[in-house]
Design a protein around this nucleic acid. Structure first.
Lengths: 155, 155
DNA sequence: GAATCATTACTCGGATAGGCTTTGTCCGAGTACAGCAGG
DNA sequence: CCTGCTGTACTCGGACAAAGCCTATCCGAGTAATGATTC
């Protein structure tokens, strides 16, 4: 069970974009330089965030990415699932209905207990991430961080 | 973020083994037939569980696998991490210290806030799985299940 | 001087290769049981 | 009849290929700013 490396990238990029002022944007190249990341691949991930509505993109000169919603309405879960997909890590393939020990169809109407427990754990994980918004992250940063980020990122 | 397909296999196999009587064992071939799984690959996974101490293996005729501990002392988390590894899904590579926007070493003494939040979610996931033991699973099964499992599996 | 238009340069978007983990398979070492021979 | 030994067949254990996904990269379509041109 491993999250893509790009998960860290987009979390930090989203945090940086949240520190911009309304109307300002940052291009994929600027973000890649800021964190020393491969620019084309990072752009691909930002595309996924845009498709999910977390970010909004503008083309042309002085274009780039910005948040698609207020920072308080963007949760870490939405960012993570935008790049990794929302599929459950544990996929129940109903092996209890296969092989010599296959159970009758009527005994499998309710979901497998093991799948239910794994699903509960996944829900706990999602709830933990859904409880944190980008605004919460910004509150934890030092007060001088936004100015520094804007200066280095866009300068 | 995906768990190996074999996770479902070993969870069901462990549940089946928990229904055996003390001293009884089931071979990898018997378990593979019971669930219609590729026997060699399943054996590989059961090896991992044995190495983790969750199962115990006996060689020779009438040998096979059995639980390595009482069912009440085996949690779903131990089974899952035996096959998938205990590595965290989110790996913080400290990209905040790289690139044009790199922070000073002294500003990074405490762990990255994003990594902390991701770690908290992972701890919630692990706690949810650690709270369920194989004995808890057996309690949820129908009362006639163990006899049926033993008959079909070992017969 | 102001408005219009063509140019330009910069942006995102999707389609295209390489590396690595996961999946699947095989054969060899070791062991407990069963049968047999001997006492 | 009991004991010891030998052979056998069955078990796990580790080493060996193939597939799928993540990583990385490229080039093309579109757009907003810019500068020149014209009224």
């Amino acid at each position: 069970m491993k999250l893509p490396t790009s998960t860290e990238w987009v979390l930090h990029c989203a945090t940086s974009l949240a520190q911009l002022r309304p109307g300002e944007t940052a291009s994929a190249a600027q973000l890649a330089t800021y964190y020393d990341l491969p620019a084309p691949y990072l752009a691909k991930q930002l595309q996924a965030l845009t498709k999910a509505g977390v970010l909004a993109a503008s083309t042309g000169p002085r274009g780039g990415f910005r948040l698609g919603r207020p920072a308080a309405d963007i949760t870490l879960l939405q960012i993570v699932e935008a790049v990794d997909g929302a599929a459950q890590p544990y996929e129940c393939r109903e092996i209890r209905q296969q092989g010599r020990g296959a159970l009758a169809r009527e005994d499998c109407q309710d979901t497998c207990i093991l799948a239910a427990k794994m699903g509960a754990a996944h829900r706990a994980w999602r709830a933990s991430l859904a409880a944190v918004s980008l605004a919460d992250i910004l509150d934890e940063l030092p007060s001088g961080a936004p100015a520094r980020t804007r200066r280095i990122l866009m300068g």
